[in-house]
Structures are given as C-alpha cells and as structure tokens.
C-alpha cells in the first residue's frame, strides 16, 4: 500500500455530518463527482477549493456524528482526501469510511501534536503517522475490514463475493 502524504486540515470536536455534507443536498445531488464542491461547506468555506489529493483531515472527538449519510464520506473521498485522523469517530461514519476505503485512523496523541497546515505522512502497513513532532502508531485494521479495504471498498468487495457465488 502506498504512503499517504499531504497537508493537514485541522478541526475540533463533534463535527457533524450536516456540516460535512448539508442535508438539503442529500436527495438532489447523487453524482459523486458533484459532491466535493459542497464538502465542509458550512464548516470551512476554504476547504472545497483548497483541498489537494493526499491531504489529511485531523479532528477531535466524535468526527462525523449525526446522520448516517454516506455522502459525508463520499464528498471527501472524491475530493482526493488521503485520510482522516481523529481522537474518535461516530460509529456509522467510521464504518462508512472503511467501506469507502478511506483510511479513518484513531490516534488521540497524533491529534494533539499535529497543527493545521502541517505536512504529515501515513504508512498504513506499518501503522505509523509521521510528523515533524515525531512518529505516532495506531492499531491495524481488523482482518475482515482489511479485506474490504484491500478490495478497494465494500462495493468492489461485495461485487467479488456476488461473482464468486454465481459461478
């Protein structure tokens, strides 16, 4: 797996899905490619235009609380975001990330050390977050989750399972 490398966008605690991807678009925008334009619209108006492939969101507790809407993950994945590091994630958001093969890493120590605008490197295989303030480790993903991840996400994973069962 390649190394994820990029600039950090840092946010606080309890950032909810309504500000990550506003509810008013949930039934009117269905094309993933149209979603990044509204990413974090109500939280950080500079994000959508400034985010570059490989960039990393670093957040406090309970990132992604609120609605189960997957667009709150898709809009970031489609924007090229490389990973999210948080003190903790809301559980549906966390599942949605892993199922979209967007690394969601729980590492409170790294969150404390990293500042907005820092350059950070993540090595998924080694379980390491490398920053100018040192290296932080995180727990590897559970096996079944890693399998989904390696397939490129849940959609690709299920597709393979379906094809397997139809043979």
């Amino acid at each position: 797996m390649e190394i994820i490398r990029g600039r950090v966008w840092k946010y606080g605690d309890n950032v909810n899905t309504d500000v990550i991807f506003p509810g008013k678009y949930t039934y009117t925008i269905s094309e993933p490619a149209e979603m990044p334009a509204h990413a974090l619209e109500d939280l950080d108006p500079d994000f959508a235009s400034g985010v570059k492939p490989g960039d990393i969101i670093v957040a406090g507790k309970n990132w992604g609380c609120g609605s189960s809407r997957e667009q709150a993950v898709t809009c970031l994945k489609e924007s090229g975001l490389g990973a999210i590091i948080a003190e903790s994630f809301a559980r549906i958001y966390y599942r949605n990330c892993l199922n979209a093969a967007l690394p969601a890493l729980i590492c409170p120590k790294a969150v404390q050390a990293i500042q907005d605008g820092d350059q950070v490197e993540i090595d998924l295989d080694e379980g390491e977050i490398r920053t100018s303030d040192g290296t932080f480790t995180f727990n590897p993903l559970p096996e079944i989750v890693r399998e989904i991840f390696d397939a490129g996400g849940l959609i690709a994973h299920t597709k393979k399972r379906l094809e397997g069962s139809q043979q």
Binding site: G66, S67, S68, E70, V73, I92, R95, N96, N99, A100, G153, L154, I155, H157, T158, R161, L162, S165
Partner: peptide, 28 residues
C-alpha cells in the same frame, strides 16, 4: 438511517448502517 436504534423500544437490536452496507445486505 441513524435513528434505527429506535427499534430497541420493542426489545430488538436496531443499529444504523450506511447505504453501501445496505446495498451489500441486499446483494449477499
């Protein structure tokens, strides 16, 4: 839907999941 825990009022185990997960349940 994130308020699926509501179903616990009847003693069920209700949990919210994402759309891809629902599609996956439909499939397999």
């Amino acid at each position: 839907d994130s308020h699926t825990p509501h179903a616990g009022v009847m003693g069920a185990f209700g949990a919210g999941i994402g759309r891809s997960e629902m599609a996956s349940i439909w499939a397999v």
